[in-house]
Every structure is written in structure tokens, then in C-alpha cells.
Design a protein around this nucleic acid. Structure first.
Lengths: 148, 148
DNA sequence: TATTGTTATACTCTATAACTATA
DNA sequence: TATAGTTATAGAGTATAACAATA
């Protein structure tokens, strides 16, 4: 099969998209036996780190809309990884259970190894530059909001 | 609303995902009036650049699987942006039509402006580093394949 | 009036398996 | 046997609009 020219390769946005897809695929593989979606795993990690946070706060932190948080939280509770208690009539405080905490700890170990596999290809200065630059790029847009 | 701590912010993969989402949202906004999906637009651009390429070749170039190319090509043809002619019994040669070429040219102008909006936030050395590093990260994984 | 959680719904991208017809 | 295109289907993320209950 012939190899095509592809000027898109010169574009930052396109390169970001391609590379993110590869990173995500490896992330999924790394945690495949958890039988959890990436969004569920990251949600669990944020709750573990922020006991008694609300659903909206988690969504705000990781850019998932309120409406889309509902089934994520529901599955975490159903699995006994997260529990919630009522704060007031409309807010619920989220905490990880003991099982949830264990799972989060194991997830962190795997994620650290997954990250290392990629980052070790870069020299420290490059990695630092990339990690500095990504939030700057995000700030260039008005659309980094969780809800409009 | 309280601001949560989020250790995920230190992860390359997570930062990439967040930033890519912002870039993609701006890309979509930039080309909203085309009433085309991002995948359709990029497919059109690659065909414009590679007359008489095959569907599989385009998929290979932009990491879209054969099966998922089918409806994309179908829509481009239905809109009169792409035409195809039979090469042999199983292959089809793709070309942009006159309309498709015009649309591709306009898309390129908009994409250049979209890119500039983000890239101008970086100094040249940073941008160069990022563009060098992204393909290196991709090479760190076995999963940069279109099929297999 | 604004906020929290919720329901319902739609769209886009991605993935796999299996089929056809051709080479 | 391998390849090009196709069909069908499922999963994941994301988006909007509208609603109830509460602050």
C-alpha cells in the first residue's frame, strides 16, 4: 500500500489528537482487568483525593458535565467503591469505601508505570516543557469550561 | 463551589486528553458552518492532497479503520465533494471534485487561523519541542496501528 | 433566582467480527 | 491466502434541554 502525504502531520491539533489516542489506548490496556471505563477510574481517583466532595465538584475538576457524572457515580456506588451521604437537600458528599481506596491505590501504581513507559522516551527538559505548555494551550481557548 | 485537589494534573496523559479536548472543540467551532464532522473534513483534506488514493490508504494515513471509513466516504460522495472511479475489481480511486477542492482550500485557511490562535501562545522553541516530542511519544506504544 | 442532581436523548469516534468479491 | 470494501453492532465520551427539589 502506498504511503500518502499528509500535511495534517504539521498541525499541533492533529498531532495532539493522534498522540492522545495512543496514550488513551495504553491507559485502557493498563487497567483493562478493572472492568471500569477511564472516566470511572479518574472519577474514583478524584473522590479518593477529596473526601466529601460533591458530584458537581468532581465534574468541575475533571471537565465532565453534571449530566454525564450521574451514571459514572451510579456505577461506582453500585460496585461498592464509593458511598454518599446527604449534606443538605440537594447536595451529596462522596467518599471512597475501603474497597474503593484499595482499588484507587492499585490504579495509581499502574498509572505511574504507564506514564513512565511514555515519559522515559523524553529527556527531562522536553517533558518539563510539554507539561508547562499544555495548560497554556488550554488557556488560549474560552472552551475549557465544564458547563456553559 | 470548592476547588478540589487533582493529582491527575501532574500526568502527561491526562493533560494531553484535556488539552486535546479544548483544541478539538475549537476546531469544530472553526468549521461549524461546514456541517461536516471533523473526521470528514480531515478525510477530504487527505484526498485533496493525494489524488487517486484508495479508501484504505486514507484510513492508514489518518488512523481510521477501514470499517469506519465507509460512512465517511459515503457522505463526502453524497455531497459531491469526492468522486471515485474503479481501479480494479476491489479498489477504488478517490479524488476531490471541484467543489471538494474549493471546500478543502477554505478549510485549510480556517485551520491555519485556528492553529495560529493556539500556537502564538508558545514561544518558537516550545512549539518546536512539542511537535518533535508528540511523534516520539506515539512511537513508545505498539498501538499506533490502524488495524491489527 | 441560582444550584444540585437527574432524565432523556443525540452525536461522534472507535472497535470487532463477519461477509463479498477480487487479486 | 491476503486485500479492499462493506455491513452490523457495540461501547465510550460528550452535548443539550428540561425537570424537580432545594438554597
Amino acid at each position: 500500500m502506498a504511503i500518502l502525504t499528509n500535511t495534517l502531520d504539521n498541525l499541533l491539533g492533529y498531532q495532539m489528537r493522534r498522540t492522545t489516542a495512543v496514550l488513551m489506548a495504553d491507559f485502557v490496556r493498563t487497567l483493562a482487568d478493572f472492568d471500569m471505563r477511564p472516566a470511572e477510574i479518574t472519577t474514583l481517583l478524584v473522590i479518593a483525593e477529596n473526601p466529601d466532595c460533591s458530584q458537581s465538584e468532581v465534574g468541575e475538576a475533571i471537565a465532565i458535565k453534571r449530566a454525564n457524572m450521574v451514571p459514572i457515580i451510579a456505577r461506582l456506588i453500585e460496585r461498592g467503591l464509593v458511598a454518599r451521604t446527604r449534606v443538605d437537600g440537594r447536595s451529596l458528599a462522596l467518599r471512597v469505601t475501603e474497597d474503593g481506596a484499595k482499588l484507587a491505590a492499585e490504579a495509581w501504581r499502574r498509572i505511574a508505570a504507564h506514564e513512565a513507559r511514555f515519559c522515559e522516551r523524553l529527556d527531562p527538559g522536553e517533558l518539563r516543557t510539554v507539561l508547562e505548555v499544555l495548560p497554556v494551550l488550554r488557556a488560549a481557548s474560552a472552551s475549557d469550561e465544564t458547563e456553559g
